[in-house]
Design a protein around this nucleic acid. Structure first.
Lengths: 128, 128, 128, 128
DNA sequence: GTGGTCTAGACCACT
DNA sequence: GTGGTCTAGACCACT
């Protein structure tokens, strides 16, 4: 269910965050569904529970999940729905912009290059 | 200077339009510089002058070039500058949106796929 | 239905455009009604299909008609309605202005002379 | 200098007003120049002095002339200049509107017809 | 059948 | 020389 690359420059907890977000945004994990417990997931992925903890804490801070002490962590309902809507809107905006850029003489390669750049910049932002 | 694919489903005159736009937007062709004449370019690319005409006519309609009968066709000044500014603005908008999409769990592959889709859709729009 | 003057300095495709616009704006051709096919009209008027194509293409670009390859060309709904409204507004503006010009000592002949001038200028604009 | 049609439905004093306005707007009569006296003009045109008086009174009311009792009537300076500027602006507006009407499928004859209509309506307005 | 693209080549007005 | 218009006719994808 998770593919982690321990040799990547991207911290494992961020890899976890990204993958959990994707699972939730794509409805693989349903709203209010319980996430694997910190300990069980740590064991399964053979990584330190603290790393899982760090990922869960960040996801909660961003509103994607909520944690009930003594019970576990769960997919947050409103945030996910709001984000899905937001994502749809963003994709529509993106389509219009990409369309106009191509019309104005921008190339597909230029666009892809920029996406790569943004992706890297995002990582660096987080580490600043 | 031009690479045309006569077997492509994209009409030759559109391939020409795209490439001329890129040359102008990237300053390979300067403002007010004369474009090759309809006839000379037709001869050089071994395609019919009418096809060049069609491309030039469309570029003029879009404001990228201006044609003076009896003199020639030239790179339009204001339109190109305006479009370059517009392109910069669009790229900045795009960066913000891509950044937010990635944050919300969108993947790079998803974005690239969408760019491909838009690119195809644009072609089809023109042919509908 | 059409009166074309092949000896006129106004290109045949422009004469066609003007007359088709008038037919549509005056409801002789209804919204969504199919226009004569490129080939049939060419045969009827004994001019080349390419010339009809050029007129239809321009009308489509201006939003007066829409063409579906394989089906035909049709009177565009919204654009025609919008243009009719626009035309009404323009006529009302014109009345006010003409009224004021006459009041200020302008003469009818002066106004008619100006209309002629604009009409010629329009043609030249297109041909510059 | 004046052409009056006594058989016209348009009152003579209005014919006078129109012609005097034209003379002033076209600089045939200069600013501050004295107009012919009521009596002399009446004699010259063999019409009643009251009719001239009525025309002068209306022109003064509209600001085109000013009368000094005991001296005579004169072309008003600022009003004429302001009106000339206004007339120029109106003509430019008119050109744009006529141009757009022709583009949208309006015909020259339609425009001329409308000018006639406005001209008649103006007369009727004054008599209401 | 329909519109869209393209070739080959003529003629025009204008520089 | 330049762009603009037009003819005659072929081929394409799609209905």
């Amino acid at each position: 269910m998770f593919t982690l690359d321990t040799r990547s420059r991207i911290p494992i907890y961020e890899q976890l965050i990204d993958q959990l977000k994707k699972l939730m945004m794509r409805d693989v994990m349903q709203v209010d569904e319980q996430l694997p417990s910190v300990r069980s997931l740590a064991q399964e992925l053979t990584i330190n529970p603290n790393t899982i903890q760090k990922a869960y804490r960040e996801l909660e801070r961003e509103g994607f999940i909520y944690s009930i002490p003594g019970k576990g962590s769960f997919v947050a309902p409103f945030q996910i729905d709001a984000n899905k809507e937001r994502l749809e809107m963003l994709k529509q905006d993106l389509e219009k912009i990409v369309s106009e850029i191509l019309f104005l003489g921008g190339s597909k390669d230029e666009l892809i290059e920029m996406i790569e750049k943004v992706k890297v910049a995002e990582r660096e932002d987080k580490h600043d």
